[in-house]
Computed example of a mutant assay.
Amino acid sequence: MLTVVQLDDEVPLDRFAEWLDGVTLRLVRADQGEDIGPVDAVDGLIVLGGNMSAHDDQLPQIPAARTALTEAVAAGVPTLGICLGAQLLAVATGGRVHVDAPPGREAGTVALRWRPEAQSDPLLGALAADPTVVMPTMHSDAVVDLPRTGTWLASSPMYPYQAFRVGNAWGVQFHPEASPELLRRWAVADQLPADEADAMVTAAREADERVARDGRTLAEAFAARVRDHVRHR
């Protein structure tokens, strides 16, 4: 069973729910007090994004998610952290996150710059074969130091650490699951100026055929990792 941890009501699994083929999903609403449970008993783990920071320990779901990520890495459970989930993965494994990083908000669609290590990566390698991948994004906090054991996989023009791997766990700062409609909701929630939000959503819609294709590729590759983990347990 693939456990999906939702940290924020406004940041759901969105289109990944239809793209994670061949696995059973278990949604844990950590933002509503649901317990993640023993991580070594799950087949895979996804930790989603949220409007809080990786250091907001007054919210019980944040330290709980960090603990789950630490345990998942130690147990070799296939893991994917998205946006805040990636930042939590970095902190949980010895990296560092800057809250309200100086470059400012990265919002809309972002062009990924693949590192050489991405070409042979078991999760992102299929995407890294294309040098023109773009993905949705919406964040102000950022990973500024990778864990010592981390492998740097992708950057963007604004922020260096767009994707990395630690053992059998991946963190992506971008949102491969997000539709243009979800980006619109985030823009409204973050009170972006109307003209900025309109331009962002228009660009996302124009790129969405490619984004959906590549998001599905990533989701299917991760589901395959989960199925392989189950077979070799």
Rank of each mutant, 00 (worst) to 15 (best):
R231G: 13
T202I: 07
R29N: 04
M135H: 06
D14Q: 06
Q58I: 04
A204G: 11
P157R: 08
L59F: 10
G81V: 00
D21C: 01
G95D: 00
T151P: 00
G171N: 09
E106M: 04
T24P: 10
I82N: 00
E117Q: 14
A207P: 11
L127C: 07
R225S: 09
R113H: 15
T79N: 08
L48A: 07
P131E: 14
E34T: 05
E177D: 12
S140C: 09
D14L: 08
E177N: 12
P131T: 09
V133P: 13
L124E: 00
A154S: 10
P122C: 04
Y161I: 10
G37E: 06
F16S: 00
W170G: 04
T70S: 15
N51Y: 15
V4W: 07
L192K: 10
T137I: 08
P102T: 02
V39L: 12
V97I: 06
P12E: 11
L183D: 03
V42C: 14
G76D: 02
V39Y: 07
T79Y: 12
A163Y: 06
L183P: 07
P78E: 06
M158Q: 14
V28A: 05
Q162D: 05
I62C: 09
L218E: 04
P157Y: 07
T70F: 04
A74Q: 15
A86H: 10
P38E: 04
A128L: 02
L25F: 04
T202D: 14
L182M: 13
P160D: 15
A129K: 08
L88C: 08
R233K: 08
R29Y: 02
E196H: 12
G167M: 09
D141G: 03
P38Y: 02
Q191T: 02
D198R: 11
I82D: 02
T217A: 13
V133K: 11
I46F: 04
V226I: 05
N168D: 12
A142S: 12
D8T: 03
A17S: 14
A223M: 07
